[in-house]
Write a protein that binds this DNA or RNA. Sequence first.
DNA 1: CACTCGTGCTTCGAAGTCGAAGCATGTTGC
DNA 2: GCAACATGCTTCGACTTCGAAGCACGAGTG
Lengths: 180, 180
Amino acid sequence: MSATHPDAGADDGEALDPQELGAYFMLMEAVSLLQHQVEQQLRAEGDLSYVQFQLLARLADAQGPLTMTQLADGVVYSRSGLTYQAGLLEKAGLITRAPGRDDERATLVTITEDGLALFGRVLPGHVRGVRRLLFDPMSGDDLHHLGDIMTRVRDHMRTQPPRSAAPRKRRTPPEAPAAP
Amino acid sequence: MSATHPDAGADDGEALDPQELGAYFMLMEAVSLLQHQVEQQLRAEGDLSYVQFQLLARLADAQGPLTMTQLADGVVYSRSGLTYQAGLLEKAGLITRAPGRDDERATLVTITEDGLALFGRVLPGHVRGVRRLLFDPMSGDDLHHLGDIMTRVRDHMRTQPPRSAAPRKRRTPPEAPAAP
DNA sequence: CACTCGTGCTTCGAAGTCGAAGCATGTTGC
DNA sequence: GCAACATGCTTCGACTTCGAAGCACGAGTG
């Protein structure tokens, strides 16, 4: 499974560590598989996509309303995509949207009773599936270690510029327009 | 970060382990962030999507041609989506498609010289990014453990029915048609 | 050899996703 | 106060993604 076949390497300094590469590919593949399975189950049990489930989870966890930006930032999602999904969830009666009191331009998203009920109804099966697929072949030590590693990794990534470093405008645009 | 707020639980037997849930959420969030960053970089350096990069990686790793099914199965992707992406890659001159000798209906996908060159050109930066984001906050022991865990998890998931258990037809359809 | 079933891939229509552009509200400097 | 910039969200068009249906080839059975 070493994607660096021997004869292709030997270029620049920062060589490709096969062990790192292997762990990385395994990680991505496992998560892909897991996500696929989970998606099937969410669709079957609650007619929810994974993103919708994540949004409900965030809203249920934070016991108050959240802004669109907070949601998009938490769920690694584009703002426009979030607008679309929020529209669907609102139409389904699972959330409500209202302009914020402090910032008139902010949109505060609140989970409804129905949304909470659906989330509560779907969560057990979800957890069961995740446990069966992900935690079944893991020891308790593995679990602890994995949580530890991933927490550190997440925090590390959150430190780096979260989405794109140049959200809207830059003081120093990357390329000066050729003919102003 | 416990998505199970205290007052909502206490339902059925298989309770929700907060530690498992936390590790799971952290895992998914970290991978999401990683994937986003990586995608940006692949787009910038080689004008490739992540899926396209994965396909090239599989093809470069397996030194011979692969069938569409092998590719779709390896990269967790729908067959129709793979057809689309293969079309793009072929149009870009990175792969070629040809009917197989043994099975006339199989499509053998081969990576071209250009494809291999592009992959080799993009891989170092990719690895650098992954190392910076993922392996930077990890110790050598972490790395070993993570690879070990994920390999086991992946194998476990590959054992389970890989995509959908009922691909085309079943001997025992899940629901008997009411009026045959 | 005909007939039926199974398999590999593609086409098609619908839904989801994203970035760029646009609109409306806040905030800052004068 | 009022420009000018900054921020929060939505709209818009293009692209991607998926499942169902369809087509073509291979395999098994009489």
